[in-house]
Structure formats: structure tokens, C-alpha cells
Amino acid sequence: MNHEMIGGIFWMVFGIVLCSWSGTYEIGTFSHPGTGLMPFLLGALLIVLSTVIIVQSVRSKKKKEEKQIKIFSGNWKKAGLIVVVLLVACFTFEWVGYVLTFFLMSAVLMILGECKNWKQVAIIAFCTTLGIYLCFVVLLKQQLPKGILGV
């Protein structure tokens, strides 16, 4: 299955889900549109357009012209780890507090970015956190969660 086909199938499923989910709301008529009409029409349009993509991908497969892309290529594991770091930071941000979150986040991300000098990592992570404190908390008076450290 080529990547165009995968994309087409994704949008078709998205369109079908959108249409059926919209059906749970009142659709109404064109003269009296209900809550579900607009998403239903958009879902239907997505189904039509994704069909075009799927048909095009089948044709190009026949012509053997298509340049394939690899879904998981290069440093995809590192990109995945960065997403994990962001998710962990997101779920613990309010509990841990901004100081610890941003210090650890910048340190871990730098290590993931192949910054091997530990001293440099610690100094830059500290400066980043201090910069955020000065700029956002002191200067712009943003309210950031203090968390377990209470600062």
C-alpha cells in the first residue's frame, strides 16, 4: 500500500466518522439547518475528495511513477521520544511546577539533541528557566503553576 493510499483511507475514515457522528445531532434541512448539518456536509465532502486521492493513487501505482516515502525514516525514534517528553511534561506540569518542569525539559531535550557536555546542559537549562522566570513571571506577570517547590 503506497503512502497516497494510506492518506486517502485516513481521510475517508475521518469523513465517515464525521458524517456518522454528525448524525447524532439534529441535521435539519437547508432552509432550517440543524447543529449537525455543517459537519455532515464537510464529512461528505471529505469522503468524495478522499475517493479522488485513492483513485489517483491506484492509477499512479499502475503507472509505477510514484515516488514512495517512508513513514518511519531517519531519526524517527528521537522525534517519538521528544513527543513522549512533551506528553510527560504536559501531564505533570501543574503538579511539578514550572521551575522543575522547564529545567528538566530543557535538559532532557538538549541531551536528546546530542548535546553531550553535561556542564553545558546544566548551565543552559538553568539559564532557560531563569530567563522564563524573569521574562514571563516578573516582567509579563504571567501566572505559572508553582507546584511542589512552591516557587
Partner: peptide
């Protein structure tokens, strides 16, 4: 870039949180 991208991600994180203080 290896020093720059953590800062960009943190700024994105911070910018979105600051909008409505909602994680």
C-alpha cells in the same frame, strides 16, 4: 540548532498554557 530547539518547544508550551492557564 540542538541548543535552540528545546527553547522553541518550551516557548510553545508556555505560550499555549498562558492563554487560559489550562494544561
Amino acid at each position: 540548532f540542538k541548543l535552540l530547539f528545546p527553547l522553541i518547544l518550551i516557548l510553545c508550551f508556555l505560550g499555549v498554557y498562558s492563554l487560559n492557564l489550562n494544561a
